[in-house]
Design a protein around this nucleic acid. Structure first.
Length: 812
DNA sequence: AGGCTGGAACTAGTA
DNA sequence: CTTACTAGTTCCAGC
């Protein structure tokens, strides 16, 4: 969807599409309130409440419509056709569809392009013919596709195509999206569907996956759903497209690759596909033998069946994203951010498009922009960034995490980890390294904890009945937390796995659902979740994908729960793990900072700071830097390493003096450990304090009220004076700044005086987006948070020295 | 036999 | 244009 640099393509003028300023059109999903009064998912209200068919393909093959989780359904944001059960309970409805009367969905804010690249026309015609061939009885409408409309990918087309069994897909979504349609129609539809929403909410409460499969053997909607989900999985296993390596697992089924690819190493001996035009010009082809993505050949893994391709939610859009122009080339490899400030660089992240294309929360604060800028600075990686004036609506600070059961928040929607008496906490965090496996590999096992066990997640404050813990793989960059484009959670099964789980797809992201049972104290050991790496080339070729895969190998594990409330609504909480490095190479080579002894010091510098981490070598350097608004370093200095007090897992440095001694407020800078060119740790935040703040800060640091095991994070102290709290949406603090104890902040306390709340604790309900950025600290500091005893002993650190968790700021 | 691991070969892309 | 390097992906072998 990147259009800024599409010579062969007609440029999209988003200002025209979304109105001036890039504002989204009225009633765009993200624009809708999420409170009790409205739903930002109104677009899906027309969907069948409980069971919907998942994919075109399944239907096309005459198979029964597999069930999907109500969660899944609820998450289907719907720029999609309405489906009706195949057994004549449901058939696609929508404009031109088999339904009589108007569709009960809302037109999405799809982007329409008023021309089509000639190079794609032929394929378009082919596709069109196929579409027509389906006829009204099929999933497609006989209404010819409008060539005058190019439906850009809603987002994550790869995942949409490959992952989602969602009914949302689809071809019909194009037809359904009438030429004449617009969001204007929402208003009159909404009234009609409101009651349906309520109904769906009621059903959710009764029959949602909140009831785990392992729970009471009651029959009912939930059990039905579970069974249907099992059937669904079974169905996929019965897919005609089997992997030569393994059976068709969910993973395979979710694979983006076309079944027609002859080899898992499709092109070069190493399977690297080139971004050739031949690969690129796939658009418009709806042939089941042609991947909607650029993958030219079949996958031996049989990853994606014809069914999944056809039924993929993005088919309705991505396959018609014509124009094999530069837009098809991995846009991340282009350094455009500087050049096209006037043009919109689109894509999931940058435009704030969420998984299904919804305009989603986009953090657009100055700080956020600064963070965007930070990326540009990287040596070699220049990420497309969002011009500051293209800021979509985002969740309003202060939103409560209360949602209708039928309109659960998108996966990239910020959620607190605590609300009221509820708290979702990660009691044991995953290890900082987990080598993800490729599709061409076997599983590399479940994510483990440092202790050797597995991550443990617990829901505190609710013990009434089972709820499902959702888990997915999120990003770990400096932008807002969202599903990771290049990694998916992978369900691990086997005798070594004790925790039940099931996979569902939520807007093209694989989500593992794990029951939290009262008998287990609403706690679960996550021994059933591995991480699958998707090939960068597959992802980057997606339309609309702006995340770059290269060196984007860090993830965070995201956990969510939706706690049912008596009123039929749910409280949605989310917590995220520490960043997890998933690359073999990176894990071996990149230095990693786990914690530091101090988070700040006076501008005069000179204090000793011990950095604890891994992959520290004698040649390692510690660099302090400050970046300007454009993300470029304005000040950079190497800290003096005290070699005699450094060793393998720790480095002691002398904090260099700040370049200006006259600052009147705290200054946020960064430091990182560098093992050489391109071998940097993640940047860590550090704060230089003006003199007047110093004493106060030191007092706090020395305060015995701060228990070693529950130490606020490194940057906590920096929050004191740097960011106004009154309007975080307007003065978005940098990520690290978000991590201070909201509890303390909310209470007006110095962060270090506050109890140790997880970073981003929802006790600051007006800062939900902060937590969503994923920089909340390990709630209970499972990481070695206390002063490392060994290190302390060996290196004779001051007894009072306390280490602060690295905040894993990714501002490289 | 199959899953899990660690290691490394190999290649495309980049500097 | 060539070369060296980097990082991603695949394969192999062992447990």
């Amino acid at each position: 969807m990147t259009t800024a640099n599409c010579p062969g393509n007609e440029e999209l003028d988003f200002r025209l599409i979304f109105g001036e300023d890039g504002q989204q059109p009225p009633l765009g999903p993200a624009d809708l309130e999420t409170d009790e009064n409205t739903s930002f998912y109104i677009l899906n209200v027309g969907q069948p409440p409980l069971v919907v068919s998942q994919s075109h393909s399944l239907q096309r093959h005459g198979g029964p419509p597999p069930a999907i989780s109500p969660y899944l359904q609820a998450h289907h944001k719907t720029y999609e056709p309405i489906y009706e059960l195949q057994d004549s309970k449901y058939t696609p409805t929508g404009v031109g569809g088999g339904g009589n009367g108007p569709p009960k969905t809302f037109e999405c804010p799809s982007i329409q392009i008023t021309s089509i690249s000639p190079s794609c026309q032929q394929e378009m015609e082919t596709s069109e013919n196929e579409m027509r061939a389906k006829g009204p009885d099929g999933d497609y409408h006989d209404r010819p596709l409008s060539r005058d409309h190019l439906y850009l990918p809603l987002d994550h087309s790869y995942r949409d195509s490959s992952l989602s069994p969602s009914p949302c897909s689809s071809l019909s979504s194009r037809s359904w999206f009438s030429d004449a349609s617009s969001c204007e129609s929402i208003s009159h539809v909404y009234d009609d569907v409101d009651s349906e929403l309520n109904e769906a909410a009621a059903r959710f409460t009764l029959g949602s996956p909140l009831t785990s499969p392992g729970c009471s053997p009651q029959t009912g909607p939930h059990e039905e759903v579970w069974q249907q989900q099992q059937q669904q999985q079974h169905h996929h296993h019965m897919s005609p497209c089997h992997s030569p390596r393994t059976s068709v697992t969910d993973e395979n089924w979710l694979s983006p690759r076309s079944p027609s690819r002859p080899s898992s190493r499709p092109t070069s001996p190493c399977g690297k596909r080139r971004h050739s035009s031949a690969d690129i010009c796939y658009l418009g082809s709806l042939s089941p033998h042609h991947s909607p993505t650029a993958t030219p050949g079949p996958s031996p893994r049989g990853s994606v069946t014809e069914d999944t391709w056809i039924g993929s939610p993005s088919m309705g859009v991505s396959s018609f994203q014509c124009c094999p122009s530069e837009a098809d080339i991995p846009s991340k490899t282009r350094k455009t951010s500087q050049d096209c400030s006037g043009a919109i660089q689109s894509g999931k992240g940058d435009l704030g498009m969420d998984d299904s294309g919804n305009v989603s929360p986009l953090l657009d604060s100055p700080a956020e922009e600064a963070m965007h800028g930070l990326k540009k600075d990287g040596s070699g990686e220049q990420f497309l960034s969002v011009p500051s004036h293209f800021t979509w609506n985002k969740p309003k600070p202060g939103h409560t995490p209360i949602f209708r059961a039928s309109s659960l928040p998108p996966l990239d929607w910020p959620l607190p980890n605590q609300y009221g008496q509820y708290e979702l906490k990660i009691e044991v965090h995953p290890k900082a390294h987990h080598r993800a496996h490729y599709e061409t590999e076997g599983s590399r096992g479940a994510v483990k904890a440092t202790s050797g066990g597995h991550p443990v997640v617990k829901l505190v404050g609710y013990n009434e009945k089972p709820v499902n813990l959702q888990m997915f793989i999120g990003t770990a960059d400096d932008r807002y937390l969202r599903p990771h484009a290049f990694y998916q959670v992978h369900r691990i099964t086997g005798k070594t796995v004790a925790t039940a789980s099931q996979e569902i797809i939520i807007t093209s992201t694989k989500v593992l659902e794990i029951p939290l049972l009262p008998e287990n104290n609403m706690s679960a050991s996550i021994d059933c979740a591995g991480i699958l790496k998707l090939r960068n080339s597959d992802i980057e070729l997606r339309k609309g994908e702006t995340d770059i895969g290269r060196k984007n190998t860090r993830v965070r594990v995201v956990f969510r729960v939706h706690i049912p409330q008596p009123n039929g609504k749910v409280v949605s909480l989310q917590t995220v793990s520490i960043p997890v490095e998933c690359s073999q190479r990176s894990a071996q080579e990149l230095p990693q900072v786990e914690k530091a002894s101090i988070s700040s010091c006076p501008v005069s510098g000179g204090e000793e700071m011990v950095i604890i981490g891994s992959n520290f070598f004698p040649e390692s350097k510690v660099i302090f830097l400050e970046k300007g608004p454009d993300g470029r370093p304005q000040w950079e200095v190497e800290a003096k390493i005290i070699r005699e007090k450094s060793q393998g897992s720790s480095i002691m440095v002398e904090v260099p003096p700040y370049h200006s001694k006259t600052v009147t407020s705290a200054v946020q800078v960064q430091f990182y450990v560098c093992n050489g060119k391109r071998k940097r740790s993640q940047s860590q935040r550090f704060t230089y304090l003006p003199v007047r703040v110093k004493q106060e800060h030191r007092d706090d640091l020395d305060s015995p009220a701060v228990p070693p095991m529950s130490m606020p994070l490194v940057h906590a102290a920096s929050l004191v004076c740097t960011q106004p709290l009154s309007s975080p949406e307007h003065s978005h603090p940098p990520d690290g700044l978000l991590s201070s104890s909201p509890r303390g902040l909310a209470a007006g306390l110095h962060p270090l005086q506050a109890p140790c709340a997880p970073m981003g604790s929802p006790t600051l309900p007006h800062l939900p987006h902060l937590q969503a950025q994923g920089l909340n600290a390990p709630p209970e500091c499972q990481m070695p948070f206390h002063p490392g005893p060994a290190a302390t002993a060996r290196l004779s650190y001051p007894p009072s020295m306390t280490f602060y968790e690295a905040d894993f700021f990714c501002g490289n």
